[in-house]
Amino acid sequence: MSNHDAGEGHAESGAHAHHGPYVRIWAILLALLVVSVAGPLVAALIEHRPTAIAITLSTAFGIAVVKAYMVVKNFMHIDFTKRFVPYLVVTMVLFMVLLFAGTAPDVMKVKGLNWEKPAWIEANAEAAAHPAGAHGAHGDHGESGH
């Protein structure tokens, strides 16, 4: 585990990356994993629905972002590559945000604006959403599910 010598990192990016305290980072990642699994379980006990959803989302996705950032920074050594690499990664993610922003207004609008969705389509979609063979008999999927 080398010490953090900032000067060297700037001078020579082609050389070896700084090796940090990997085991400690791994332990933090595991702790975050426990929190992200426990979050929804705690949320299931809370009566107030918006709070429960907020806890689920923040523990699930907030922690996913933190974990991903830690892996990218410490394991992939993105800060020891040239500056354009993080820019490149962020740009690609932004393209996906753009795709979502342009597509979601259509795809997420299940009900039309100036037209009625025929009832039989709803009926078919309902039937498709609840597959026949998938009832019951999954008690061993140890999940409370709400």
Binding site: V37, P40, M96, L99, F100, T103, A104, V107, M108, K109, V110, A125, E126, A129, H130, A134, H138, H141, G142, E143, G145, H146
Partner: peptide
């Protein structure tokens, strides 16, 4: 992104997702 759009638009997704095994 496609998955998230469908997931947010259709409530049926949440019911089905309940059957996955978190552990």
């Amino acid at each position: 992104a496609s998955y998230v759009m469908y997931r947010l638009a259709h409530d049926a997704f949440a019911e089905q997702a309940a059957h996955t095994n978190t552990w």
